[in-house]
């Protein structure tokens, strides 16, 4: 056994190397992911093959490459209409009944009433739901028998281009990203599942609304450079010597900044969510008992 490091930020190279190799191994594995039972994926849901998420910022002991298992992600964000069904079924999530602890005062502010979308109901119903807190999003997903995607899962899915797995190497993908992240949110949101899907068939990961992730509160430094001194250092354990992995990935900076500034009860006019779920366990026991 090695002597104990004096300080938690002491580097341990060997496990990291191992993780790195594991990541590469998983990533290579995903290239041949044809073996996954794609035919069992329900309509409106998309199989996202296993891959590697490279966090934008990381602490000295954090993984450079995070292996992500294959999972299922909804093709589009949850719509206002779908959320309306949810609050009808579970009244404690209606606007007048929700506890302030779980959603701030602008929760579902765009609706005319507890269960009324208002005069533009038809148009609104097709738009992604916004002004929902993390708690509400989580409750919706649980109601559906699903869950929120992790940040790693979401970023892996969102990094996929229109024609290439590595979107960042694709000029059209980069252009479309720059277009959206550089323009304000329109007063009237387009419908969910509008626009061009990515290679996997996922819509609106960029270009419509921001989305909650299950572990949005795992970011340990703020994207704001002013916040990374003094107080923030004492607030966060192990936040020293951080560096961004890709400084040119501006949209990723923006998402990082947003996530680190959110609180779980916040509701925001352009923040929605979509649901994810684990791959179904294979029906027939094959060689390995692995689910």
């Amino acid at each position: 056994m090695n002597p104990k490091p004096h300080h938690p930020v002491a580097r341990t190279t060997t496990p990291r190397l191992l993780w790195g190799w594991l990541g590469v191994w998983l990533w290579v594995g995903c290239l041949g992911a044809g073996a996954t039972p794609t035919n069992s994926i329900p309509a409106g849901k998309i199989l996202v093959p296993a891959g590697v998420y490279r966090p934008l910022f990381r602490g000295p002991d954090e993984l450079k490459e995070v292996p992500v298992n294959a999972f299922i992600l909804d093709a589009a964000p949850v719509t206002q209409g779908e959320f309306l069904e949810f609050v009808r079924a579970i009244p404690r999530w209606q606007r007048s009944q929700v506890k302030r602890l779980f959603a701030d005062s602008s929760y579902l502010a765009q609706w005319a009433g507890d269960t009324e979308l208002g005069p533009d109901a038809a148009a609104l119903a097709a738009q992604p739901v916004v002004n929902v807190s993390w708690f509400a999003a989580k409750a919706f997903a649980a109601w559906r028998g699903q869950r929120l995607p992790t940040t790693a899962e979401w970023e892996l899915a969102a990094g996929t281009g229109f024609s290439r797995l590595e979107g960042i190497t694709e000029p059209e993908y980069r252009r479309s990203l720059a277009r959206w992240y550089g323009s304000p949110t329109p007063a009237v949101l387009p419908a969910a599942k509008s626009g061009v899907p990515n290679l996997h068939g996922l819509y609106n990961l960029h270009g419509l609304v921001w989305e909650w992730t299950s572990d949005f509160n795992s970011a340990l430094i703020t994207g704001d450079a002013r916040g990374d001194t003094g107080i923030e250092r004492s607030l966060f354990c192990g936040a020293g010597s951080l560096g961004a992995s890709d400084r040119s990935n501006y949209p990723a900076f923006m998402r990082f900044g947003l996530r680190s500034s959110l609180k779980a009860a916040y509701t925001v006019h352009n923040l929605g969510f979509r649901c994810a779920q684990d791959l179904p366990a294979p029906k027939l026991a094959e060689n390995s008992p692995q689910p």
């Binding site: 341990t12 496990p15 990291r16 993780w19 602490g59 002991d61 954090e62 993984l63 572990d215 509160n217 795992s218 970011a219 340990l220 966060f236 192990g238 680190s260």
Partner: peptide, 8 residues
């Protein structure tokens, strides 16, 4: 409170 498990 934000937190994250690291490689160790």
């Amino acid at each position: 409170i934000n937190y994250q498990k690291d490689a160790r």
